[in-house]
Design a protein around this nucleic acid. Structure first.
Lengths: 156, 156
DNA sequence: GTTGAAACACCCTCAAT
DNA sequence: ATTGAGGGTGTTTCAAC
């Protein structure tokens, strides 16, 4: 793994907060020349530390007013089933995140959708072709924090 | 609320997938002139639909190998306590998301950290000064999808 | 909505230190 | 590591349609 020094971590922290910053601004904030900063960014991109950039949308302002955390318990524990499930989830509109988890449940899916009707539409698509052991939804009442930058304060 | 037409939603979808695209590229992909596309972006930014841009980091490549979903049940249900808790969470390193949720638990926090030691450090900081009724952690075994673009296929 | 143009900022590379 | 300079590209604002 590429080891990140203090300046690398500063650069990554700054760019996680605002991905629109110019290289000049980034360089200035981390106390470097624009040239040196550019070389570091190249290295971080080549190493795959920087995955890319994403424009962030306010879900509510786009009419997406409902966030649900769906947990799933499966009956099947084969690699084939897991692969089929993964492809299934990847094709479902509204899915933002999906994790395989430990404990009582097997999968956790974050869904952002348009009201309860949108969630039901998601649910119907989710269960078509799959016979889950259990499905439950935890509804978000309020988003307190979202997409906070990763904490890079300690060395990697 | 600003109503988004088909082209707005195309623009937002494209920029959620790749925030580094130039306005020329975006304009081309949505079938517009660069000038008209620029005006739409201005409007979307002014309306707050576009919140900004974020450079995405590979957590594993930055040494952050553990994702935990922490659920909390509180003893207190006053507005003052909620505000104090919110501020507390906002200052905790490693927190990526935090939601107030319905059901058996009150809060859901997504934490990305450095191994079990990092998680324990988070836990210790989480509970200092707060006397929660219950805290539980759901550990991610595998990230299947993360930060997928919001689904804007239906009108807002 | 469109095109074209001009002024400016930014990105990337190079040379020199 | 740094500065400085140059060419190409992107952004922003015009005017005209």
């Amino acid at each position: 793994m590429l080891s990140l020094d203090t300046i690398d971590r500063k650069i990554l922290t700054v760019l996680q907060q605002d991905g629109t910053l110019s290289q000049r601004d980034v360089a200035e904030r981390v106390g470097m020349s624009q040239n040196a900063c550019w070389r570091r960014l190249q290295r971080l991109r080549d190493a795959g530390v920087i995955l890319g950039s994403q424009t962030r949308i306010d879900p509510a302002k786009a009419g997406l007013d409902l966030t649900v955390f769906v947990m799933i318990r499966t009956r099947h524990h084969s690699a084939d089933w897991a692969e089929a499930f993964r492809k299934h989830v990847d094709g479902l509109p509204g899915v933002v995140d999906c994790y395989r988890i430990g404990g009582e449940w097997d999968y956790l899916i974050k869904v952002v959708t348009r009201g309860m009707g949108g969630y039901d539409a998601f649910y119907q698509r989710l269960i078509t072709g799959f016979d889950f052991h259990a499905v439950t939804g935890i509804f978000s009442m309020e988003t307190i924090l979202e997409s906070h930058p990763l904490d890079l304060t300690r060395p990697a």
